[in-house]
């Protein structure tokens, strides 16, 4: 149903949805389709649709793929705003990310901007100048700092962040 396609030229707006949403069963989320913006492609404009997007070229604008994944590859450059489920950054990105799922930043990434997501992972050595806000739904599962302080002081261990005895 969804074939791999490649954006061929610049344009104001690239529509990725092959069919209008109302024609599909409501429970189906097509994950198999993906679009690749190739290394030699430059796009200025907005993209919205219902399949995954891989940026290996250059793009400036807004991406709205709320239930899908956006990947900015190692040679990819993006400037603007991304709304997606999961976002993976390996290239250069300047702008804001709004992810309902996870944002992954690899060691090759160069990111400047703001991230709002449910979870995040960052590889050591990535270039990052960011503001990060995570959904706090998982907060209950996190042990309190106070509890950790007790564990730390009992365990005589290596340094811990602002936990220990006052001299």
């Amino acid at each position: 149903m969804f074939e791999r396609r490649k954006a061929q030229s610049s344009g104001e707006k690239v529509e990725l949805a092959e069919k209008p949403m109302e024609n599909r069963p409501a429970t189906v989320t097509p994950k198999e389709g993906k679009t690749i913006i190739g290394e030699k492609i430059t796009i200025e404009g907005d993209i919205r649709g219902q399949e995954d997007l891989i940026i290996e070229g250059s793009m400036k604008g807004k991406i709205e793929l709320e239930t899908h994944q956006v990947i900015v590859g190692p040679k990819g450059r993006f400037e603007g705003e991304i709304h997606a489920d999961n976002v993976t950054i390996s290239g250069h990105l300047m702008g804001n990310i709004f992810a309902t799922g996870k944002v992954q930043i690899t060691r090759d990434a160069d990111f400047t901007g703001e991230i709002k997501a449910r979870t995040i992972s960052v590889e050591d050595g990535a270039f990052l100048k960011a503001v990060i806000e995570l959904e706090k739904k998982t907060q209950k599962a996190i042990p309190s700092i106070g509890k950790a302080v007790k564990e730390e002081t009992q365990a005589t261990a290596s340094p811990s962040l602002a936990a220990g005895k006052t001299p």
């Binding site: 960052v122 050591d124 270039f127 990052l128 100048k129 503001v131 990060i132 700092i145």
Partner: peptide
């Protein structure tokens, strides 16, 4: 910084707005 994934996740899960700059 330096940018260490474990530290970023640790702080981001606990602080409403985490600013990171290496």
């Amino acid at each position: 910084g330096p940018i260490l994934g474990a530290n970023i996740v640790f702080f981001a899960r606990r602080i409403p707005r985490l600013f990171v700059c290496d």
